[in-house]
Amino acid sequence: MMKRIPKDWPNSAFSQEIQVGDLFWHVQVSGTSPSHLLLLHGTGSSAHTWGAIFTELSKHYTVIAVDLPGHGFTKNLGNKTLSLDQLADTLTDLRKALKIDYFDSIVGHSAGATLALSYALKNKQPKMIIGLNPSLISLPNFYNKFVAPFLNPIVTSSFFTAVLSDLLPRTNMINSLLDSTKSVLTPEKRDRYKTLFKSADHLNGSMSFMAGADIPSLLSRCKKISSRLTFIVTEDDGWIPIKPLCEVIRKDFVNPRIIEIKGGHLFHEESEKLALEFIMSALTEEEAKHVHTN
Rank of each mutant, 00 (worst) to 15 (best):
L168P: 04
Y193E: 05
S199D: 12
R170K: 15
S180A: 14
P187I: 11
M207Q: 06
S199T: 03
D191I: 01
K194V: 14
R192D: 04
S183K: 06
D179F: 03
K198Q: 15
R190M: 06
L167W: 14
S158M: 05
T195M: 07
D201C: 01
L196W: 07
T161F: 02
D201N: 15
L178H: 01
H202V: 00
S158C: 03
K198W: 00
L168C: 02
L167Y: 13
A213I: 11
R190E: 11
N204G: 09
F209V: 05
D201I: 01
S176C: 04
R192L: 15
T181N: 02
S183D: 01
S180N: 13
T181G: 02
N172A: 08
A211E: 08
F159R: 11
L164D: 04
K182H: 14
S208K: 12
V184H: 11
K189W: 07
T181K: 08
S199K: 10
S180F: 04
D179K: 09
R192Y: 08
N172L: 08
L177E: 02
T195H: 10
R170N: 11
S165Q: 06
T181Q: 05
A213D: 10
L185H: 14
I215L: 06
T186L: 15
K194F: 09
D214F: 11
S176G: 10
S165R: 02
L203S: 02
F160W: 13
L185N: 12
K194M: 07
R170S: 14
S158G: 06
T186G: 05
K198D: 02
S206A: 15
L177N: 00
L185A: 07
K182W: 00
L185P: 13
D214C: 10
I215E: 04
N172R: 09
L185E: 12
K189P: 03
L178S: 04
P187G: 06
F209T: 02
S165D: 10
S206P: 02
L164P: 02
N175S: 04
T161V: 12
N175A: 06
L167A: 11
V163F: 15
G212V: 03
S208R: 12
L177Q: 00
D166F: 15
D201L: 04
N204W: 01
P187T: 10
A162G: 10
P169E: 05
